[in-house]
Amino acid sequence: MDTTTIQLLYLVILMIFLGVELIHHVPSVLHTPLMSGANAIHGVVIIGSIIVMGMADDTLSMILGFLAVLLGTLNVVGGFVVTNRMLEMFRRKS
């Protein structure tokens, strides 16, 4: 394995520990918004779809790439907006 791959593996392992630490002791009231927020964050997959689309050169790749960017955008935009709406409900009203 080359050094880049090894470095990526280091990063993966460290991120696993960080993810576990971040979620510890979250009150159950916030489970749903937290899940929804995490859902929006994995929308980062859109970056990959933009790269694929930006390098596509035949019709089939173009169509599938377009679809990928579209679905990724749904994940990102929908995810963040839904989370925001949920959290709005938690605001203390005076």
């Binding site: 990063l11 696993i16 576990v20 971040l22 937290l34 964050i41 980062v44």
Partner: peptide, 9 residues
């Protein structure tokens, strides 16, 4: 982003 959500999820 992916691994963080994978682990936290």
């Amino acid at each position: 982003g992916g691994i963080l959500v994978g682990s936290a999820g």
